[in-house]
Design a protein around this nucleic acid. Structure first.
Length: 781
RNA sequence: UGGCCCGUCGUCUAAUGGCAGGACACCGGUCUUUGGAACCGGCGGUGGUGGUUCGAAUCCACCCGGGCCAACCA
C-alpha cells in the first residue's frame, strides 16, 4: 500500500463515496466490512482515467481496513486478450496497489451465472426471445415512445428452460435466440425494457476456450460478480447511473438478499488535452503519429510510466482532484503540479545543457581540471548527498542563457556582464565570437578566482546563476521534450480525422546534442533527476536502456520568466505551447420561464385546484402541486382536518415533506396527513418550534409515530424559560470571542452563526426570534 | 421529445438549513548561488426567477445550461 500522500490532499473521508462508506461502517450495515473492486475489461490499455478509479477503490479499501479485488470483467470473447490481463496487472502494481489473493475473473463465474439465469426463468422473470437483433432493437421503442412486447414473451417456463439449455448446448447459430429479462417494455428507463441477458456467440474465449457459446451481458453479469464476491460498494462511473435500476432488479430476482452490494456512481476523469479512448488512440498508433501505446505524450498508464512520472505523483493527483458527481475537465496544470510536487522533494539535481554554447575561460589554466563538490539537493530539500563536477577552461552553457541584446529584466549573461556558474565561479563575458553569418559560436570570458562557490566575498552581487558542463568531461545525450499532442479541441465528439488535423507539430522535440555532467553515468538507469533550471528528466526505459544516454523530460520546471517574456512579446517569446485553449463555458441565462399551469383540462384536478387556490387561499404553486395527484390532495385534506391553516399546511407538505421523501412515495409513509396536521397545530400552539418540528417530521418519515409523543420522547418541547435561554446565549457568545469582535466590527452575517450555535445547543427548542433579539441586544451592548 | 443525473471563484472541490472555505491557475511581494522550491499577500464564485424559513449554495416549484440512456459492447 502506498504511504499516505501529501498535505494538498483533501481530508480523507470527505467525498460523497467516502461518506456513504463511512456511514455504512458506522451503522454496521455490512458488519463493518468494506469490499470494493476494480473491474476492467481486458480489452485495451489502462489510462489515467482508470487510475482515478483504481486509486479510489484501493484507497477506500485501505482507509477502511477492507479489501479491493482486481476482477477482470471478461464476458465478451470478441475483444478480450490475455496480453491485456498481464499489462493491467503491471499497471495496477506500478501504481502501488496489491490485490493480494483477490484476483478474479468474471468468466470463472459462468456456471453460477447460468444457474442464476435458470432461476430467473423458473420464476418467470426471464424468457427466450427468438426475434432478430434488428427486431429486438425496433421493439424497444424510443426515449419518447414505449416499446412493444416480443411475440415470444409469453413462452412457458418449460419451453424457455428447454430453449435456454439448448442455447448453451450449442444447438443454435449466433443470434438465433437471446435470453431476456421480463420487466417492462414501457419503462421510461430504456434499460428496463426487457434487457438482453444472454446471447449466443460461437467464439473462442481467451480463458474459457470453447467451453461456452452463450455469454452473459454486462447488466446481468456485473451485479452477480459483485454479489458472488461479497462486494459491498460497487463504484462505477456516471454513465452507469441508468444501469443501477437493472443492477438491483437482477439481484432482487435472483434472490440475493440484503445486506448486499450497491452501486454508486462518480464522475470519471477527463483531463485537458488528453486523448483517452481506445477508439481515438488507435489511429495515432496505426499511422505512426505516436510511437506506440506507451508514447510518453499519451495518457495511458504505460505512457505515463515510460515518461518517468512517479506513481506517487499519480496518486497525489487523484487525491487532489477529488471525487464528485459533477462531470469535470481537469486542467493539465494540476497534473503537472502533482508531478513537480513529488519530484521536487525526491529528485537529485544535476547539470545539463540542452543547446550548448561554448565558453572559454581565458584566465583559467589550460589543461587544469578543478573538482567541485556539488550537493544533490538544495538547502530546502532535507536530503543528503553530493557528487563531484569537474570544472575546466572550456564549459558549455545554455545558448538561451546568453543574450547580446537582452530584454529588460534579463538576469543571465550579456556582453561585459557577469553571471555565476552554478557551484563554481563568477565569470564575465569579455568577447563574443561569431561566424561569418553572425551567429554567436563562442564566448570568451574571464573568471574571478575569489568567487569559488561557498567562499565568495560578501557584497558580491551577481544578477544570476546558470548551469554549465565542462567540455572535456561532458556526456553527449539525446533529450526528448514533450508537449501537448493537439493544439486544440480534443473534446469527446471531435471526430478522429478532425483530431488529426489539430496535431501539434512540436509535440515531440528531440534534442540530439545535449551535454550532461559525467556523474550521471554512475547512477542507476531509473534515476529521476532535476536538470537544474530546466526540468525533471529520466532515461527513457526503452531507447535509453543501453549505453547511449536518452532522456525524457518528465515535466518542465515552472517558469515564470518565459511566461512573462511570452506575455510581453520579448525576443524569447517562443512557440512554447501551453494550455491556452479557451473553453466555452455554457452560459445559463434566465429567461422569463412561464409556468405550465395546472392541468385544468382534467375536471378533477381543476376542481381540487379551485378548492385549494380559491376557497383555501393556498398559493398557486402549492395548490397546483397538491391538486395534481389525488394521492397528495387526499393527504392534504387529511391534514386539514387536524389543523385549519391551509397555507401553512401546504408549505409543510410541499416544501418540507417532499424534500424528506427522497425515493419514497406517500404510500411508503407510516403516517398520514392527519399527523402532519397535528404537528403543524403543535407548532402553532407554541408547543414546539418549527425547527424542532422538522426534526420530528424527519423522524416520522423514517420510523412513523405520533407527533405529540415524538416531541415528548425526543425532548423537543419548546424551551420557555427566558433565564435558561439567556444563559445559553451567553455561553455561545463566550465561546466565540473573535466572532463577537468581528460582528461588532460590522460583520452582521455572523448572527446566523450565533443563532445556529444556540439552536445546536438547544436542539432547536429555543425560539429563534427570541434568540435573535436577545443575541442582538447582547452584541450591541 | 420521455426518464435519470449534474450546475459553487478561470479550473477542481468543501460547506449535509447557520461565518461561502481550500487547492490549482493568475497577479504582487519576501527570500534565494535553480527566473525552481518555500513563505506572505491579492484577485475571484453559489446559472436565473419565485417560494418556504428567524436564517437557503443547501428544502420546494418553474426556467436555463450540461451529461447519460433507444449494442445480442462494457
Amino acid at each position: 500500500m502506498p504511504e499516505s500522500t501529501t498535505t494538498t490532499a483533501p481530508r480523507a473521508g470527505t467525498d460523497f463515496i467516502r461518506q456513504i462508506v463511512a456511514a455504512d461502517v458506522e451503522s454496521g450495515r455490512y458488519g463493518g466490512r468494506v469490499v470494493t473492486r476494480f473491474p476492467p475489461e481486458p480489452n485495451g490499455y489502462l489510462h489515467i482515467g482508470h487510475a482515478k478509479s483504481i486509486v479510489l477503490n484501493f484507497g477506500l479499501a485501505h482507509e477502511f481496513g477492507g479489501r479491493c479485488h482486481l476482477r477482470y470483467d471478461d464476458t465478451n470473447p470478441d475483444t478480450e486478450k490475455e496480453e491485456f490481463v498481464v499489462a493491467m496487472q503491471d499497471d495496477v502494481r506500478w501504481l502501488g496497489y496489491d490485490w493480494g489473493e483477490h484476483l478474479y475473473f468474471a468468466s470463472d463465474y459462468f456456471d453460477r451465472m447460468y444457474e442464476c439465469a435458470v432461476t430467473l426463468i423458473e420464476k418467470g422473470s426471464a424468457y427466450v426471445d427468438s426475434q432478430q437483433a434488428d427486431d429486438i432493437r425496433e421493439g424497444r421503442g424510443s426515449v419518447t415512445e414505449p416499446g412493444v412486447e416480443s411475440p415470444y414473451r409469453s413462452r412457458s417456463v418449460e419451453e424457455n428452460l428447454d430453449l435456454f439449455s439448448r442455447m448453451r448446448a450449442g444447438e443454435f447459430e449466433d443470434g438465433a435466440h437471446v435470453l431476456r429479462g421480463k420487466i417492462d417494455m414501457a419503462s421510461p428507463n430504456m434499460l428496463m425494457r426487457d434487457p438482453v441477458l444472454y446471447r449466443i456467440r460461437h467464439a473462442h474465449h481467451y480463458r474459457q476456450g470453447d467451453a461456452w457459446c452463450i455469454y452473459p451481458l454486462y447488466d446481468y453479469a456485473h451485479c452477480l460478480e459483485d454479489a458472488f464476491e461479497d462486494v459491498t460498494h460497487s463504484i462505477c462511473t456516471l454513465e452507469f447511473e441508468n444501469n443501477r435500476e437493472l443492477y438491483d432488479w437482477v439481484l432482487d430476482k435472483v434472490g440475493i438478499e440484503e445486506p448486499r452490494t450497491h452501486q454508486y456512481e462518480f464522475a470519471r476523469l477527463d483531463l485537458e488535452d488528453a486523448v483517452l479512448s481506445k477508439r481515438r488512440i488507435a489511429p495515432l498508433v496505426n499511422e505512426g503519429l505516436v510511437s506506440g501505446w506507451d508514447d510518453p505524450r499519451l495518457s495511458t498508464i504505460a505512457a505515463i510510466r515510460r515518461r518517468g512520472v512517479p506513481p506517487e505523483a499519480v496518486r497525489t493527483f487523484c487525491d487532489m482532484i477529488g471525487v464528485a458527481k459533477t462531470p469535470a475537465v481537469i486542467e493539465r496544470a494540476r497534473f503537472d503540479y502533482a508531478v513537480r510536487e513529488v519530484l521536487n522533494a525526491a529528485a537529485p539535481r544535476v547539470m545539463a545543457v540542452l543547446e550548448p554554447l561554448k565558453v572559454v575561460i581565458t584566465n583559467f589554466e589550460d589543461g587544469r581540471t578543478e573538482p567541485i563538490e556539488a550537493p544533490y539537493y538544495p538547502r530546502d530539500v532535507p536530503k543528503e548527498g553530493s557528487r563531484t563536477v569537474p570544472f575546466s577552461r572550456e564549459v558549455w552553457i545554455e545558448r538561451s542563457d546568453f543574450e547580446e541584446d537582452p530584454p529588460k529584466g534579463f538576469r543571465r549573461l550579456v556582453p561585459g556582464g557577469e553571471v555565476r556558474l552554478r557551484y563554481a565561479y563568477v565569470i564575465r563575458c569579455d568577447e563574443v565570437v561569431k561566424d561569418e553569418e553572425g551567429n554567436v559560436v563562442e564566448l570568451r570570458c574571464s573568471y574571478d578566482p575569489e568567487t569559488r562557490s561557498g567562499s565568495a566575498p560578501l557584497g558580491r552581487k551577481v544578477k544570476g546563476t546558470i548551469q554549465w558542463v565542462s567540455v572535456e568531461s561532458a556526456l553527449d545525450a539525446e533529450v526528448r521534450l514533450f508537449e501537448r499532442l493537439f493544439v486544440e479541441g480534443t473534446e469527446e465528439g471531435t471526430d478522429e480525422s478532425a483530431l488529426l488535423e489539430h496535431l501539434n507539430p512540436d509535440s515531440l522535440v528531440v534534442v540530439h546534442a545535449a551535454k550532461v555532467e559525467p556523474s550521471v553515468a554512475r547512477d542507476p538507469a531509473d534515476t529521476r533527476y532535476q536538470f537544474e533550471r530546466t526540468g525533471y528528466f529520466w532515461r527513457d526505459p526503452v531507447d535509453g536502456a543501453g549505453d547511449s544516454l536518452v532522456f525524457n523530460r518528465i515535466v518542465a520546471l515552472k517558469d515564470t520568466w518565459t511566461k512573462k517574456e511570452v506575455a510581453t512579446g520579448g525576443p524569447e517569446a517562443r512557440r512554447d505551447v501551453r494550455s491556452e485553449v479557451p473553453r466555452a463555458r455554457p452560459s445559463a441565462q434566465a429567461k422569463p420561464g412561464p409556468r405550465p399551469g395546472p392541468r385544468l383540462d382534467d375536471p378533477e384536478v381543476a376542481a381540487r385546484f379551485e378548492r385549494f387556490r380559491g376557497d383555501l387561499g393556498v398559493s398557486e404553486e402549492h395548490a397546483e402541486l397538491l391538486a395534481d395527484s389525488p394521492e397528495w390532495a387526499e393527504f392534504f385534506e387529511a391534514a386539514l382536518i387536524e389543523y385549519d391553516d391551509a397555507v401553512a399546511l401546504a408549505g409543510w407538505v410541499v416544501n418540507d415533506l417532499r424534500g424528506m421523501l427522497g425515493d419514497r412515495g406517500l404510500a411508503d409513509l407510516r403516517f398520514g396527513g392527519g399527523e402532519v396536521g397535528s404537528l403543524a397545530a403543535l407548532v402553532e400552539e407554541g408547543g414546539v418550534t418549527r425547527r424542532a418540528a422538522k426534526d420530528v417530521l424527519a423522524r416520522m418519515v423514517e420510523e412513523g409515530g405520533d407527533p405529540k409523543e415524538l416531541v415528548e420522547a425526543m425532548g423537543l418541547a419548546v424551551m420557555n424559560d427566558p433565564d435558561e435561554l439567556a444563559s445559553i446565549v451567553d455561553d455561545v457568545l463566550q465561546a466565540w470571542p473573535d466572532k463577537v469582535m468581528e460582528y461588532r466590527e460590522g460583520k452582521h452575517a455572523l448572527i446566523g452563526l450565533f443563532v445556529g450555535e444556540v439552536m445546536k445547543k438547544t436542539r432547536g427548542t429555543a425560539d429563534p426570534e427570541a434568540t435573535k433579539s436577545l443575541l442582538a441586544a447582547r452584541l450591541e451592548s
